[in-house]
Simulated assay, not measured.
Amino acid sequence: MEQIDKVLPMGRYPVDLDTEPEKRYDELFQKQEIQDLIPTLRQGVKDMMSVIPEEVRPLLVKLLAELDQCLPQPFAGEMRGIARCTGIDLGEIVGLNLGYDLSTFCTSIVAQDSKGTIWHGRNMDLVKEFAKTSEFLRSTAIMIDFQSKGQTLYTSTTYLGYVGAPTGQSPDKFTVSVNLRREYNSIGQQVYKTIKDLTRRKVNSVH
């Protein structure tokens, strides 16, 4: 598996958790360098959706937009705000966020060195076999300092358009990361079940 070894600089930005979820990312998306990444984000969503048969794609996007109503706050509100800021369909933003929970990429390790220091590391599995996805993630990777009352509560290495913290650390407290999964995890299973239920409900409503 050939790795992509080019290193790109990663921006670091604050996000105010005291702001209501639907407006929480407004300041971030007003920055010019983030505005410049919106076409990349839009293309990444398009590439992601291209694996779905074209004839069912509009229905899936509509279902994913309805799935937003089933997601807990603040994530649902944050996704609606990101959709508004980027002009990308809400269903596509929901799909972008759920895609990682339904995939099996990236690996984390926890190790202890000879001095007793604990190290928590995570790779991004950027490989040439998945060139489009790897280039998209590499280009949109950012660091976010989630703050309240001017203090950073935790920092996340994430991707533009994603909510939550796939990788994060709270200063002098703990670190977290989403690790590789060989099967659907419990979140993925619930997402899959919810999409099936929404599909059944939508089909039944037209009969």
Rank of each mutant, 00 (worst) to 15 (best):
T140Y: 10
K23S: 13
S148Y: 13
C106M: 14
L102E: 03
Q30F: 04
L153I: 15
P166I: 06
G44H: 01
D113R: 03
G188E: 07
D145G: 14
T117P: 10
V206E: 12
T104H: 14
E27V: 05
C106L: 13
M124I: 11
L126M: 09
L37V: 04
D89N: 01
L60D: 03
V203Q: 07
I4L: 11
S139E: 12
Y100T: 10
I34Y: 03
P171F: 07
G77N: 04
I118R: 14
D113A: 03
M1V: 13
L8I: 10
R57F: 02
M10D: 11
Q43L: 08
L37S: 05
V51N: 04
V15R: 03
K46F: 01
G188R: 06
T140P: 09
V15I: 09
A76M: 06
I93A: 00
S108R: 13
V45W: 00
G150S: 15
R42E: 12
L126K: 06
M143S: 12
M124F: 15
F136N: 03
T194L: 14
I187L: 12
V178R: 08
A65D: 05
L71S: 00
C85P: 01
E183K: 14
V7P: 04
R80M: 09
F29A: 02
V7C: 04
L198R: 07
V127F: 09
S205W: 06
I88H: 02
F174G: 01
P9M: 10
D113F: 05
L102D: 06
L90K: 02
C70F: 10
L90T: 00
T140N: 08
Y159V: 10
G81I: 07
K46I: 00
A83W: 00
K23Q: 14
N179S: 02
T40G: 00
V127W: 05
S156G: 01
Q189W: 11
A131R: 10
S170A: 15
V56Y: 03
D47A: 03
S205K: 08
E2A: 13
Q189S: 08
P171H: 03
S103A: 15
S148L: 15
T167Y: 11
V163G: 08
G150L: 14
D125Q: 15
V94S: 00
L64V: 01
E78P: 08
E135V: 04
T194V: 13
E183S: 14
V191S: 04
V110E: 09
V176L: 09
T133C: 07
L17H: 03
P72R: 00
R122Y: 11
V203G: 02
N185P: 10
E183L: 14
I109R: 14
P9F: 08
E27A: 10
I144C: 13
I142E: 11
G121R: 12
G164F: 10
Y100F: 10
K31D: 10
Q190R: 13
Q189C: 09
Q147S: 15
V203S: 04
V163W: 09
L17V: 00
T19F: 04
E135S: 05
